[in-house]
Amino acid sequence: MAVLSPQVVFTLFGLQITDTIVSTWVMMLIIIIVAIIIKRFKPDLGEMIIESINSIISTVMAEDEDVTKYLPILGTLGIFLLVANIFGIVPRMVSPTANINTTIALSIIIFFAVHVYGIKEKGLWGYLKDFANPIFILPLEIVSQFSRTLSLAVRLFGNIFSTDLIVAIVFVLIPFIAPLPLAALGILTGVLQAYIFLVLASLYIASAVEVQEVEQERRELKQTIKESSR
């Protein structure tokens, strides 16, 4: 059990501060300082980063969708995960995503963001109506909403944690050069998992928003048919 639970570094007002939280604070500080430096001295680089995140999101969204609407949540998520997944290679730090509480929190944020964007796009009644269209799909929809939230959290945690664990085990056996290729593999896995989390989150938001357009097209088609038959 000592392997699975994070170590307590110090206690603050009766709250146990674990090494995951300390790593997250250090990481937040680094990201904020780098963001300020990029904004002050190299605005072109920031524009390039935003463009690349936009292009990742727009691969799964609908063609004419305005992806900058979702950039605040998805871009933040992408940058956070990209740094967090490879943060374990920094000495004396652990990856924040190697703790299941972090990944569950992130996937719960995505769970609520999907519904908020869906309700904002279609209105409450229209969004609820899409859940039961046709009616026998309702239980499947509800199960899939929860299972995909769980799988999003567990996938990220499992990948990052297992690579960290493998590096630690090999380090105990052969401490000299042998853990290096595995650490490099861990970096590759971390970048890939950040990309996959970002793509899946935008896919879920797209699936909550997109149905409305089909509905709207159907309504417009019905309207034109009605007008032309007149």
């Binding site: 799988s151 996938r155 499992g158 990948n159 890939l192 990309y195 996959i196 899946l200 896919l203």
Partner: peptide, 13 residues
């Protein structure tokens, strides 16, 4: 990539 991630999550479970 998406389907590989979905397949790999079985092994992670």
């Amino acid at each position: 990539l998406i389907s590989m991630a979905l397949l790999e999550s079985t092994a992670i479970y």
